[in-house]
């Protein structure tokens, strides 16, 4: 067994790890780097619980090999809040009770953030299709959709411009 050395950036920080050829990015994040926020719900790309971004693109980390992360920027749920400030999506999920058990929540937040970056003012239908790759079995999605709508509204308002600016400065 020879390990592969991989250099990557995770949530903006340089990270170097060694993995086996058959290990997924999800395995590496969870088992080698201690980043257990991404969850394994299916390992076949059907549930979205392992959602991360790779160079800003929403990806199921169970479908990417760890070795493929070489040279890329990986974004995970652990990088979503900045210091003590939660991302507006995180705050709105709490406010709207948009989680029950919470296992799907990290993946859904990563997916919702990715959606709002591309489309800051989505319709309900666009939100529903934007999150269609992330399964939630507890909520029936109602409160999740409302939380995303509310977060999008806040992010579009002056308040969000300010928090975005803070986020950029920190990054």
């Amino acid at each position: 067994m020879s390990g592969i050395t991989v250099n990557t950036k995770i949530n903006g920080d340089p990270v170097e790890f060694i993995c086996e050829a058959d290990e997924t990015l999800l395995d590496v994040l969870r088992n080698r780097l201690g980043l257990t926020g991404a969850k394994e719900g299916c390992s076949t790309g059907d549930c979205g619980a392992c959602s991360v971004t790779v160079d800003g693109r929403l990806t199921c980390s169970c479908l990417v090999l760890g070795a493929e992360a070489e040279g890329h920027n990986i974004g995970t749920i652990e990088g979503m809040a900045h210091g003590e400030s939660l991302h507006p999506l995180q705050s709105k999920f709490l406010e709207h009770a948009a989680l029950q058990c919470g296992i799907c929540t990290p993946g859904i937040l990563v997916a919702a953030k990715s959606l709002l970056e591309k489309n800051p003012d989505p319709t309900e239908t666009e939100i529903r299709f934007g999150l269609a790759g992330n399964l939630c079995r507890c909520t029936g999605y109602d409160k999740i959709v409302r939380a995303v709508q509310d977060a999008a509204k806040e992010m579009r308002s002056g308040k969000s411009a300010k928090s975005k600016a803070t986020a950029k400065k920190r990054a």
């Binding site: 980043l35 257990t36 926020g37 991404a38 995970t76 749920i77 652990e78 979503m80 809040a81 939660l86 995180q90 999920f93 709490l94 989680l99 919470g102 929540t105 990290p106 937040l109």
Partner: peptide, 8 residues
């Protein structure tokens, strides 16, 4: 338990 669940 909310903050723990939205931050991973």
């Amino acid at each position: 338990d909310g903050i723990d669940k939205v931050t991973g």
